[in-house]
């Protein structure tokens, strides 16, 4: 199946929007699953979009761009992976095998976009000194351009040049690599999970991690059911500790009172 010009335009626009979305309203940006879903709608195959997006989503759970760190751009990966999965007809594992290297390469362009905006920062600095508020505001908003293009241009190039190149890659790919990538697609979510566990105070709450694991692996409780148990445990935790906060405050007060009494006696 060939990709149409309209589909290329829509996917390029999606790529421009998804990074702006990520920086502003955060409705689909940041989340490969939601980008994959929309890419799937554009390509006319929602199922593959969901599968590609969902797999990538699990790899980046809890991975954020905090403090300006660049992370693998699996949003772009989801767009390109979904598009080529549909045009090549090679399915999910092929798409993931493509999306992951694309996401890793895109890190460089994220760095470039963040660097480009330093140029506008300097222009802002300059216009502040001459008190030109209009020019200050304008140059701040120009930041949109490097951000948007850093995603839209690579996607446009990959989609227009892609078909031929991708076909060559597929034919040349050896068996050990395709098989290995298939295994990689299965176990890559461990990276996202491990990063998340590193970020959270896992040691403090490890009991709940074990409860969740037990429910899913031994009792085969579906994810929503596990979440319900989690919500219940969260409520119990909140209630119990809220009481101790209130109690603690009261105790402090009464202790202060006692201290005062003591003082009076000693006087």
């Amino acid at each position: 199946m060939h990709i149409t010009i309209l589909q290329i335009i829509l996917l390029t626009a999606l790529s421009f929007w998804m990074i702006i979305d990520q920086l502003t309203v955060v409705v689909i940006g940041n989340f490969p699953l939601l980008v994959g879903l929309i890419a799937g709608v554009i390509m006319g195959d929602v199922k593959i979009g969901l599968a590609v997006g969902g797999t990538l989503q699990l790899m980046v759970l809890g991975v954020g761009t905090y403090g300006g760190a660049s992370i693998p751009d699996f949003l772009t990966g989801a767009v390109v992976g979904t598009a080529f999965a549909v045009t090549s007809g090679k399915g999910l594992n092929f798409a993931i095998g493509l999306a992951v290297p694309v996401g890793l390469l895109m890190v460089q362009l994220d760095v470039l976009a963040r660097f480009s905006n330093t140029y506008f920062q300097h222009r802002v600095d300059k216009y502040i000194n001459v008190n030109d508020t209009k020019a200050v505001e304008r140059n701040i908003l120009y930041g949109t351009i490097p951000w948007g293009l850093s995603r839209a241009l690579p996607v446009l190039i990959m989609l227009t040049l892609g078909n031929g190149i991708v076909n060559v890659i597929i034919k040349r790919m050896p068996e050990w690599l395709t098989g290995g990538l298939q295994v990689a697609g299965g176990i890559l979510p461990v990276v996202g999970i491990a990063i998340l566990l590193r970020y959270l105070p896992t040691a403090k709450f490890v009991a709940y991690l074990i409860i969740g694991f037990f429910l899913a692996s031994y009792l085969k409780v579906p994810m929503l059911g596990v979440a319900l148990v989690g919500v219940a445990l969260g409520f119990i935790y909140y209630e119990n500790h809220n009481k101790t906060i209130v109690k603690g405050a009261n105790q402090e007060e009464s202790q202060e009172g006692e201290d005062l009494d003591d003082g009076e006696y000693e006087d």
Partner: peptide, 22 residues
């Protein structure tokens, strides 16, 4: 803390369901 606790319960369940290694 309560939210983190919920998150970790879900992550615990995530490990055996989404990582496929046969």
């Amino acid at each position: 803390d309560s939210a983190i606790l919920l998150g970790l319960t879900v992550v615990g369940a995530l490990i055996p369901t989404v990582v496929t290694a046969k």
